[in-house]
Amino acid sequence: MADKKNDRAFAELIKGIVRDNPTFVLALGLCPTLAVSVSMTNGLGMGIAATFVLLGSNIIISLIKKFIPPEIRIPCYIVVIATFVTIAEMALKAYSPALDRALGIYVPLIVVNCMVLGRAEAFASKNPVFYSIMDGIGMGIGFTLALLLISGIREFLGFGKIFNFLVIKGFDPVRMIGLPSGALLVIGLLLGFFNLLKNHNK
């Protein structure tokens, strides 16, 4: 019995990273992905902030799911999510003002990140707390890894840097990849690439 529980917990954790990756497979939360993936520092910061919010809201929503009337469940989720976003925003402002400035409006906007609301609606409101924690962590890691991949490509090609360190001297960066149009281009190509992999493995 314990084995079975462990197996399922592991499955819930791992599915968010590859099979149900929020960015590349579910295509959720693309707006902050497009906007903040200019540098890997931003990507990592956004990933951690979103993971924190996702984990917190998954736990609380899973705990109170019996008390939420189904007719007004979305506003209830939003209130819970907004609480955690406020905590994340205040923590960022207090401990990392530079990152807070770089992420700007996109930290408060985690409230409307459809990845967080989507997991609350699709998973946490139907499953026990333990699995919801696993789901939140897995999805959070998947989101962070996707952000790191996109922002890594964009920062390297668009500015010639990785985590703000100059990698190759004399490399003339492809400035367009660092511009918003480059974000759409990189995400589109990566989505296509992951679909290709998925179809190959079938």
Binding site: D172, V174, R175, M176, S181
Partner: peptide
Amino acid sequence: AFLTASWP
């Protein structure tokens, strides 16, 4: 357009 945006 790509070249103009990347290496003006």
